[in-house]
Amino acid sequence: MSAVAAIARRPRTSLTLWIGLALVGIHVAVALLSLVWTPYDPTGMTGGRLAPPSWAHWAGTDRLGRDFFTQIMIGSRIALIVGTSAVAVGALIGVTLGMLAAFATRLLDDALAATLDILIAFPTLLIAMLVVAASDTASLGTAVLALGIALSAIVARLTRILAKRVLLMDYITAARTSGTSWLGIVFQHVLPNIWPTLSVNFALQFGLAVIAEASLSYLGLGAPPPNASWGRLLQEAQGTVYTAPIGAIAPGIALLSLVIGVNLLADGLRDIADPTRRVSR
């Protein structure tokens, strides 16, 4: 069953879901648009320096006179790519590890759990910085990989706990008795049952990843120019935040609206994935 079909079949879909869809939809649309059109050349001097918002420059210009709105549009693209890929990397590694731990012998499980606890004690950003430092060039790819690896520990721990709880259920034992293999159990029962909780967590992590990428870029460890990530925009606006506050406000709003949108969307989708939460028929 596709999510779209499920939404369409149910007219009373929660408001959360629609607002989330709208916010994320706007960002996706803007990101796609930025591939073929932006108001100005992102690297060109297009007006006065630090110009306030006007009809010609909706979000003003930066200290080199580049159009700020153009850069935010491109930043949308980067945020979406970084968020999605980092969560995908984190989910792939994390869910696999967590599932292994849940099914593993006690010794291996304890070892994995302890390792994860130690990893989680390190701030996500610190782990990401270490990974970036270990690879000698800063690029979008390294940033994504670094964030994905950093996030995977959290995903793994959550997956392990959730999966263990499902594995205690009688229907698992019944399925095992009727001859379902471990792999069958994972894909038929465990993953679907932990998915609603995991997906909400992925949305949180998407937000974390976008913010962490902004932080990495802010520290000069993220995507190098001309990738105008919101983090870099914020960093550049730092020195002029009192004279031209729009430089910090605009990327801030962009960042916030995307993170909130993704979280609302995940909340709404969880309600669809879980039949016990659906509006009764």
Binding site: M169, D170, Y171, T173, A174, Q188, H189, P192, N193, A273, D274, P275, T276
Partner: peptide, 12 residues
């Protein structure tokens, strides 16, 4: 089993 609540997968 004893507990009808956990005898069936809630999602299917």
């Amino acid at each position: 089993f004893q507990e009808p609540l956990t005898a069936l997968d809630p999602l299917l």
